[in-house]
């Protein structure tokens, strides 16, 4: 798992797979409620004009996260 990075560092349009979620409590719950769980495939599809938050594409829908929240999500490239 040496290719693991946090979601903040991910490039736009890179295909990623979630390795782990480090968030606890309410934030962790909200992230998981949206289907961001280990194994899920995501793509960063865009960043807001001020580079934060980011827009994430899951298989069926798009959601947004702040960079500070993306820090808790560890991903690897899924090519």
């Amino acid at each position: 798992m040496d290719s693991c990075i946090t979601l903040r560092q991910a490039q736009v349009n890179q295909k990623l797979r979630i390795c782990s979620i480090g968030a606890e409590g309410e934030l962790g719950r909200r992230i998981r409620d949206m289907g961001l769980i280990p194994g899920a495939e995501v793509t960063v599809v865009g960043k807001a004009p001020l580079k934060d938050p980011v827009a994430l594409r899951l298989r069926d829908f798009t959601l947004t996260l702040r960079n500070s929240e993306a820090d808790h999500i560890v991903v690897e490239t899924a090519e």
Partner: peptide, 10 residues
């Protein structure tokens, strides 16, 4: 702050 995790509906 409340987590921003929010859906961008089509």
């Amino acid at each position: 702050s409340t987590p921003f995790v929010m859906e961008l509906p089509p």
